[in-house]
Computed example of a mutant assay.
Amino acid sequence: MIGMNWIHNVAPLGHHRARRPTEPATPMRHRDFDLDSLEVFVTVAELGNMTRAAGQLGLTQSAVSHVVRQLETAFATQLFDRSIRPMALTASGHRLWHWSKRILGDARQLPAVIGGKDTLFVPELRLGCIDTLAAPFMPRLLQQLRDSVPSFSIAAGLSRQLREQFMARRLDVIFTNESFDDLDQVDSFRLLSEPFVLLVPRSAPDVADEAGLRALSQALPLIRNTVDSSLGRMVDQHLRRLGMEIPRSFAFDAVDTMMAMVAEEMGWSLLPPTALVKSRQHLGRLKVLPFPAASFRRSVFVVARKGELGALPARIHKAGRGILTQGYFTDVLASSPWLKPMISR
């Protein structure tokens, strides 16, 4: 941690006074320095001459030399090779120059960032995503955002879990099935709307109507999501509306396992197309059919706290929609082209 001297001695960058620094009452401790001394060092390093650096900074040459000596004492190493002309940075000097440039650059951004004038600067973006959309969507999204956000942390899980983490401020932006319309201080952008489709083993007969669906449910168990997932609740509620009370046999919290079960002819399932993309390796071993009764859909939203990230949530939404329209569903549509007009992006 930088010493308290860093806090007390910070002067606005670019506003140096012509002065001769006095020797400190006690020797400078390791890493006990201020922004002014780093800017003096960087200027000397880039100009290769203390006299020229002093002229640019409005200091005397002896004051600049004193600052450099202080830094060399603080780090217990030689920063410049003075045996050659023009003098050059040592290996330690190169390392200090690199980090000083970074520290000074960050310091110049502080007034705008803390004052709210640059709300697009986000040192770390904490994203949450429902499991059915996490891959390959999230890697493609991060590829588009990494030029403006230096660091990311990603959480994938159920909508309920993401909501809890978002409300506890452990996540900044989430991709979820919930619109958060019940909260005023939240911005919600619809990313897509998609239907649930019927997945059956390749050996099973096609299901053309509600009677066929009932026959299927008698012949094979339903491979369903767990009841604490929003997908599981949506499927159960819709089947009840159709008057179908199907006994519970298998319930999973991972769509990959659900599709593998169908591929192994262990049952049938209902999932949205984004889940099929995530687990597309199973598509060749099962059949994807339109839901034969009254259809039902789910929407995915981008949710962020209102006004806290500037235009970044809108940019994330735009980038996400672009990803979904640029061949995202190619593998699914290759075997089920009838799905294309049913997916709204």
Score class of each variant (00 low, 15 high):
residue 15 H to I: 08
residue 264 E to I: 02
residue 218 Q to R: 15
residue 253 D to M: 07
residue 226 T to K: 14
residue 245 E to S: 12
residue 100 S to R: 01
residue 105 G to W: 06
residue 165 Q to W: 09
residue 198 L to P: 03
residue 206 D to I: 12
residue 95 R to I: 13
residue 35 L to I: 07
residue 65 S to I: 01
residue 208 A to P: 05
residue 11 A to I: 14
residue 246 I to W: 03
residue 169 R to A: 09
residue 34 D to N: 15
residue 272 P to V: 09
residue 277 V to F: 01
residue 105 G to V: 09
residue 20 R to G: 12
residue 85 R to I: 09
residue 298 R to W: 02
residue 207 V to R: 00
residue 227 V to H: 13
residue 88 A to N: 04
residue 156 A to H: 07
residue 78 Q to T: 15
residue 47 L to H: 11
residue 100 S to A: 13
residue 60 T to F: 10
residue 169 R to I: 02
residue 92 S to E: 13
residue 238 H to A: 03
residue 326 Q to V: 08
residue 25 A to M: 11
residue 182 D to S: 08
residue 258 M to D: 00
residue 316 I to R: 00
residue 36 D to T: 10
residue 252 F to R: 05
residue 313 P to C: 11
residue 233 R to I: 14
residue 245 E to C: 07
residue 204 A to Q: 06
residue 223 I to S: 00
residue 151 S to I: 09
residue 227 V to N: 11
residue 86 P to E: 08
residue 217 S to K: 04
residue 70 Q to H: 13
residue 99 W to V: 08
residue 26 T to Y: 14
residue 123 P to L: 10
residue 64 V to L: 01
residue 282 H to S: 08
residue 165 Q to T: 10
residue 333 L to Y: 14
residue 336 S to C: 12
residue 318 K to V: 10
residue 268 W to C: 01
residue 298 R to E: 07
residue 328 Y to T: 04
residue 126 R to H: 03
residue 78 Q to G: 10
residue 116 G to V: 06
residue 96 L to P: 00
residue 11 A to H: 12
residue 311 A to C: 07
residue 221 P to T: 01
residue 119 T to D: 03
residue 331 D to M: 07
residue 287 K to D: 09
residue 109 Q to N: 05
residue 131 D to Q: 13
residue 149 V to F: 02
residue 128 G to E: 01
residue 52 R to A: 15
residue 256 D to K: 14
residue 48 G to E: 04
residue 88 A to F: 04
residue 71 L to R: 06
residue 227 V to I: 11
residue 193 S to M: 07
residue 228 D to I: 11
